[in-house]
Amino acid sequence: MYRIRFHGRGGQGMKTASRILGKAFFLEGYEVQDAPRYGAERRGAPMFAYVRASKEQINERGIIRHPGLVVVADESLIAVPAAGVMQALRSDSILLINSMEKTKLWQDRLNFKGRIIALTQSPSGKGWDEMRFIGAICAGGAARLAGVIQETTLTLAINEELAHLGSDVVQTNLEMALTAFNELKNDTGIVKEGKPVRADDYRPPSWIELSWEDPKLSAPAIHAAATSEKLITGQWRTMRPVIDYSRCNRCWWLCSTFCPDGAIHLDKERYPQIDYNHCKGCLICLAQCPPHAVSAVAEPVAEAQKREGE
């Protein structure tokens, strides 16, 4: 049985990814389950979706415990304990991460024995712009790694699952999914089917007795201020606000007052500076700047400009 888990944030399309992959397995003659799981149902919150596929009847229910493949759309989730990305991975599990970082770095970082594949810079090398299509990209990658899904089947599944979004959207998603599908050609079929779990095989967990501890020690207390700044919400952005300092008249820092995320501070000369690690790209600053000094640049374009500048 194939057991595959997709991790992302609400709004990133992991439910769609699981539906596309599930449909593709189904069209290949598999019995399939696919379901999303939300912690807090809100855009940006960690969630996951999973797919089981088997030629035999599937008796398992509930969330997947030992996935053969884990696909991560948003690398920032790996460090979030509540997201459970690394939960119950085995040394024969495969981890596919959509990441700007190289595979080697993830291997060092995670101390994980299994195979890690980083979809560096996303399939076409264009960067974050494709976050909008990341659901299809992840489904395409997973289909290739499973190895039993033909390109025509994947195409059909995407057409059916995304039909309600209109043909243009379907077309772009299809291109993205197939780029990922082709990119991973050398790894066709590396995901192994897991054995079915039988009730007879169930062993109760070996509990570890924890003795009573003073709540002052055992309660999950946070001892530092504003630790949320460790989370890089800048990755949510598809458009980047850019300030044209020749136009900014250093007004009464309206952009900084209105920015919901507190991502704009004033420098010594009282010019506003945007903290791109945390700016989510809502573009309120653009809408509210009186002299229209803020413009929006698509992330991949901004990234390319930055690289050229360096």
Binding site: A226, T233, W252, T257, G262, H265, D275, C282
Partner: peptide, 26 residues
């Protein structure tokens, strides 16, 4: 009295999981 009197630095940490453009967080 004027907008210029509003704080120009902020003490609530960034990096929260609220939606982009959340009026409540603002």
């Amino acid at each position: 009295q004027r907008l210029k009197d509003l704080p120009s630095s902020h003490i609530l940490g960034s990096g929260t999981p609220m939606c982009a453009g959340c009026g409540g967080l603002e």
